[in-house]
Computed example of a mutant assay.
Amino acid sequence: MTRAGKHIYTFLDDHLGIYDNPQGIEFIMNMDDSVFVVSPITPPPEPYADFGLIYPSQPFNTFVDDFQFSGTRALITMTPNKLWALYRKGKAEIYCTIVVKIILYALYFRLTENNKMIVRDDYDREHELGMVFTSPLQFLDYTQSHFFTEAG
């Protein structure tokens, strides 16, 4: 582990594995030392939806390498632009979650290197979409139609 990695690990550990930076980005280190990062996009397209960027759980060293962190200050000052850059590289995803009472239904969308869009559900089932979504409403509409198909 690099020196920067050791400092970041200690920083997250000192925060009991969960750190929300001033820009609203949440870093979560799991018990197995994997890390994922979440940045909500506000406002969501509808009040019953959560929408944002997520860096899916990765081993700690992969997390540090992907974000190219040089120290703990990079965690504190990181903006959503870094997650958008990782999204464009296919390493982060857009999540769209429908929240109705106690029902949660989430889909995760990521770009591939050849600019295709892959959608994944909570069961890690994936398929390629025929287009690349660009607006929050497209993500929400697709998630809703998929939810109704699964529930029906």
Rank of each mutant, 00 (worst) to 15 (best):
A4M: 06
I41T: 11
K89E: 09
F148V: 05
N61A: 10
D66Q: 12
L129M: 06
G71R: 06
G52N: 03
I76Y: 10
E46L: 14
Y105E: 07
P44N: 01
E46P: 06
H15L: 02
P40C: 02
S34T: 02
S145L: 10
A85L: 09
V38T: 14
P22T: 03
G17C: 09
N81Y: 13
F109T: 12
H127R: 15
L75C: 05
W84M: 08
Y105R: 09
A151I: 04
N61C: 06
D122Y: 12
S57E: 03
Y87L: 05
Q138G: 10
F109Y: 06
Y123K: 13
M131E: 15
M1Y: 03
L75A: 05
E26W: 01
Y105D: 07
F27P: 09
Q58K: 08
N21V: 06
H7W: 12
L111H: 05
Q58W: 03
F148H: 10
Q23T: 13
F139H: 10
Y48P: 09
I28K: 11
E150S: 08
T62F: 07
L86Y: 04
I28Y: 09
S70I: 11
D50H: 00
I103K: 12
K89F: 07
P56L: 00
L107C: 02
M78F: 07
A49R: 07
D124H: 12
T149D: 14
F63K: 01
I54K: 13
R3I: 15
L111R: 05
L137A: 15
Q144R: 15
K82C: 00
A92P: 01
V64N: 07
V99C: 15
E126T: 05
R110N: 02
M117A: 04
A49M: 11
E46C: 14
R88T: 14
Y19D: 12
D65M: 08
T143A: 05
S145V: 03
I8M: 10
S57T: 06
Y9S: 11
A106W: 05
R120Y: 11
I18L: 03
E150P: 01
S39M: 04
N61K: 08
P44V: 03
N81Q: 13
I118V: 07
L129P: 00
E113R: 13
V38F: 10
V35M: 05
K89H: 09
P47I: 01
Q138L: 04
N114E: 14
A74R: 12
N30T: 02
I98A: 08
M1G: 13
D33N: 10
T97R: 07
V100G: 08
F60K: 00
K91P: 02
H146V: 03
R88C: 08
